[in-house]
Design a protein around this nucleic acid. Structure first.
Lengths: 351, 351
DNA sequence: AGGTACTGTGGGAGCGCTCCCACAGGTGAT
DNA sequence: ATCACCTGTGGGAGCGCTCCCACAGTACCT
């Protein structure tokens, strides 16, 4: 005459034990049903599921984490201040891909910013406490200590892009080389004779690869590569302006510019306008990233699109694999752990 | 002769027990030191802290959560699709305030989107599992079932804004009434004779309060309020255009418009331009939100600023209080649980 | 001297799971 | 019939903490 129906007395949540009692089975059996083990007869499974439904049972995550030594959570770590995170579509696209791929899973996603030193210290503490099963690291700089910290703590991790040609961590990159090639081949196919390259920061691996693509496209077409026509910007609008100015000086008869980012292309466009060059009539312009800037530029900018959302999805796949691999003490050896996804040229009016 | 120095054998992390052994004290004492209990002598505390440092001890969160029945995590729930989250400065400001206030704490912040039905079901499951100690609910609609779910699960929660005049949940709102008043008083002080109001959706409590402020400012100045000069838009640019058109019809000699949001003000501006009214010469215009739109409008828009970042900080304060209150079985009664922060008029060239 | 009341400390019990060993009962080979 | 070997099941042990009771030691009152 005390309690009544669903959940026992005291407002506490039902436990495995209570479900077991209700279903007339043992604790182990309920656990097996909850975790989808095949070693349960259909009749028993049905009985347990009924009891779960009646009691409104929800597993206690903390207890599970303690007993099984896993958290069912992964972190998306953004080593940038929040402002950049909100400003750049890169991150929201990535987040969408990650979220989509994760929604089929029981895994929980945590978003962690590590822009300031203080935040980084917190993060280190957090990782040391093993509060996540794995980490997704986006936008890593070549000298970032985070990747090393992660492997030292033996926490599964996947990075977007890569730090160098011989990246050791599992990674998902886009084909910067192919993207660069495609941009330049497109410009040549449009009949452009003098294609110059406004490069990104050359200490960023991806930017370097775009340069390689630029080079190879010219060579394959039997043209010469003039290193003086490859001028690095710093990924900013101002850098794009400076580099473009230099390029115009060095090569007044250029008729095509391949820029390593849309933002730099925007800077270049201003300089070209001021120099009286019409786009695309006098000079064709191609950017990189296919960001909002590209679509809203006047004229709309041809740009190389990276499949960021898909990269996010792929990173999750890789990471879940890494996590699964580490559960039994067998490492199934190194499979494909560095993936490269294709980039795609989006042609608009600027070329 | 087996292991060496920091952390024992087997790569496992050190436990409380090991720290206790190392420091030559009992388990309970170490726990007390870790949790900052004052009931420990200075000498003992120092010994324990040394052992902690030597072993690189980090508490196991899962064990703590299981034993103490808390998670040290709170969730920021955004009942919107991710796109809106990234598009509106409101959320990033809020997140900044929340993050700042939380960084002094051990609390972890989770960001959860609940835009789609699917995401909502996941969230419900998540909350039922009590995976967070508390919830911050931003941008709640009047008919949202989430607040009720939270109180049913007895999870501490704080909402931004409020659903009605008699909001039951702890909440942090900004002074929409005062903001509306300030806008209108400012327009009258500038010598405007005919101030009309382009209102927001009237089923949104905050929008309603802005109308109240508009009314009262006029009444206090001894003017009449004509309800036909209060036209609701729907917070969109188009809605602003439609409402403005109507207002011009009803009151051709208006010389000031108070709009319930910057976006609607932008729509109103277009209609005014097309009607040949100059801003601010013929018509003064004031918006609400002080968003990026306001700063970039031509002319820059006078607007009412809400202290969103501070609202975020305050929400955390309230929530942490709620959580703390629920730990001992004493409810210290209802204190100030519905806070209202002042709004501030930012004057620019449009008025 | 005995009482009362603190402070500081040790360690048992228990949080709700998972893991795994033990074992019953069935099945098919020898 | 005997053995080997499955499938399905129960339940003990233990994950690493917190909570709390017990108790030694000291201090200060009567």
């Amino acid at each position: 005459m005390a309690s009544h129906g669903a959940r026992g007395r005291g407002g506490g949540r039902p436990t495995l034990e209570e479900v077991a009692a209700r279903a007339g089975v043992g604790r182990g059996t309920v656990s097996r049903v909850i975790n989808g083990s095949p070693r349960v007869s259909d009749a028993t499974r049905a009985a347990v599921e009924a009891a779960v439904a009646e009691l409104g049972y929800v597993p206690n995550t903390a207890a599970r984490a303690l007993a099984a030594n896993r958290t069912d959570a992964i972190a998306l770590v953004v080593p940038e201040p929040e402002t950049r995170f909100f400003a750049e579509p890169y991150f929201s696209d990535m987040l969408r891909g990650v979220g989509a791929e994760l929604s089929d899973t029981e895994m929980q996603l945590l978003l962690i910013f590590a822009g300031s030193d203080r935040e980084r210290r917190r993060l280190a503490q957090y990782l040391a406490a093993h509060r996540v099963d794995g980490v997704l690291l986006v936008s890593v700089h070549a000298d970032d200590p985070l990747p090393d910290l992660l492997s030292q703590l033996e926490i599964p991790a996947v990075i977007s892009g890569r730090r160098s040609a011989d990246e050791t961590l599992p990674s998902v990159d886009s084909d910067n080389y192919g993207g660069g090639r495609a941009a330049v081949e497109h410009l040549m196919a449009r009949g452009r004779r003098k294609v110059v390259h406004l490069a990104g920061r050359l200490d960023v691996y991806g930017a370097q690869r775009r340069v390689d693509g630029y080079r190879q496209a010219l060579l394959d077409a039997g043209r010469e590569v003039d290193d003086r026509l490859i001028v690095p910007g710093d990924f900013t609008e101002n850098g794009g302006r400076r580099a473009m100015t230099l390029l115009l000086e060095r090569c007044p008869d250029l008729d095509a510019v391949f820029a390593g980012s849309d933002v730099m292309a925007a800077g270049a466009r201003q300089v070209l306008r001021e120099a009286g060059r019409r786009i695309p009539d006098d000079v064709a312009l191609v950017g990189y990233d296919d960001s909002a800037i590209a679509r809203h530029m006047d004229p709309p900018l041809t740009s190389v699109r990276q499949p960021i959302e898909e990269m996010g999805r792929t990173m999750i796949d890789l990471l879940l694999g890494e996590i699964a691999d580490r559960r039994p003490a067998v490492s199934r050896g190194l499979e494909k752990r560095q993936l490269v996804l294709p980039a795609e040229l989006v042609v608009r009016a600027s070329s």
